[in-house]
């Protein structure tokens, strides 16, 4: 069984690749079909943020049996411009790129754990986790 996968993100078609790989890994880990959809959707949003704001980066998908509850972890990492105001970026409906939206509040809602780390000029790392029910 594969425990970790790295998906390089350079263009818009990598969004589809990342979420398909994430869904396949989550399926191997035994997630239910409605959870698979949530995980794939979250990956889609996070990968799109990389493409639109940082141009390139990577998505790491891994099985995680550590911590209080086992599940799947998705890390979206880029070395783009970073987010100036994280608090605001996590508010519903906030967007800096003409109505596209960062999708971060939505991702936070559909995943069980959510961490964001961003520094202006140095990039952004988002780590999310979905627990297995």
């Amino acid at each position: 069984m594969i425990n970790q996968l790295r998906v390089p993100v350079n263009s818009d078609s990598d969004i589809v690749i990342a979420r398909q790989k994430g869904r396949a890994l989550a399926e191997q880990l035994g997630f239910s079909s409605s959870q698979l959809t949530l995980i794939a959707t979250a990956i889609s949003e996070l990968t799109r943020n990389i493409v639109y704001y940082a141009k390139c980066g990577e998505v790491i998908l891994q099985r995680d049996d550590n911590g209080a509850r086992p599940g799947i972890v998705v890390i979206a990492r880029d070395e783009g411009p970073g987010i100036e105001d994280i608090e605001r970026a996590l508010q519903k409906g906030y967007s800096t790129s003409g109505g596209l939206g960062l999708g971060l509040p939505g991702v936070r809602r559909i995943m069980d754990e959510f961490q964001i780390d961003s520094a202006l000029g140095r990039g952004t790392t988002v780590r999310v986790k979905k627990w297995k029910l």
Binding site: S34, L36, T37, L38, T41, E45, G106, R109, I110
Partner: peptide
């Protein structure tokens, strides 16, 4: 629209 997809959409507010 598939049931799971609809469920995920509303949770995202879409």
């Amino acid at each position: 629209i598939q049931p799971e997809v609809a469920f995920s959409m509303v949770q995202l507010g879409l």
